[in-house]
Amino acid sequence: MPALLELDAVSKRFGGLDANRDVSLVVEEGQIVGLIGPNGAGKTTLFNCVSGFFPPTSGSIRFAGNEIAGWAPERVLRAGLARTFQVVRTFPEMTVLDNVMIGAFARTNRAGEARARAAELLAFTGLAGRAHARGADLTIADKKRLELTRALATQPRLLMLDEVMAGLNPAERAQAVTLIRAIRDRGTTVLLVEHVMEVVMPISDHVVVLDSGRKIAEGPPRTIVRDPNVIAAYLGEKYRPRDEGTA
């Protein structure tokens, strides 16, 4: 069976800047894949290319058997690939329930059905008690949870989370990890973008590391943390272990 998401030599150039250069990666159905890298590594750009917000300059993006490079975001979403935003984009003037209903409407035209699905998902993610609060009135942690719920309501096969852990305290992070595992267990594949390594390592089945727009390493978490290229990328060349890895 082919992989759910397959990127082959994806590049994105902004003028003279190579934000992504020849990035290839594979996400298998049922996995939690972590995409990490220092600030400015090109993670969010890659995300935007995959989710249709930017067309890639070159390369191929295959999702569930379709070549989706250059598709509009709404079409990518309908194909079963949902995302959240690094900087939260809740609908501020709408209630939490209405926010989630917008996601649910991707799969139904009937308001009653959308409302029922939204309520069910709010119970799953633990926001049911805030269903009638306005989006603007939530805390950052709740806003992030709302975005995740909203994306889930579109019934994605692959959920891409852009730094959902950023800005959360350790207790909130632990709860987010539990939730992401629960989402995977419901049958949704997860691609997780983070720049904080500690939160990605415990839950990822597979980790891809970007630095300066290129992929510098990939593999299971325990080998990634020892990879000399990764250590150098995060801590600086000075800390590169003496036994040099493949460059």
Binding site: E74, T90, M94, D98, G135
Partner: peptide
């Protein structure tokens, strides 16, 4: 106001990029 159309229009008013990310053909 009560139909999918009304919900989508309010989403567009609130945040067009977020609306697109949720499948709204803006």
């Amino acid at each position: 106001e009560r139909s999918k159309l009304g919900y989508y229009l309010r989403a567009i008013k609130n945040d067009q990029q977020a609306a697109r990310s949720l499948g709204v053909p803006v």
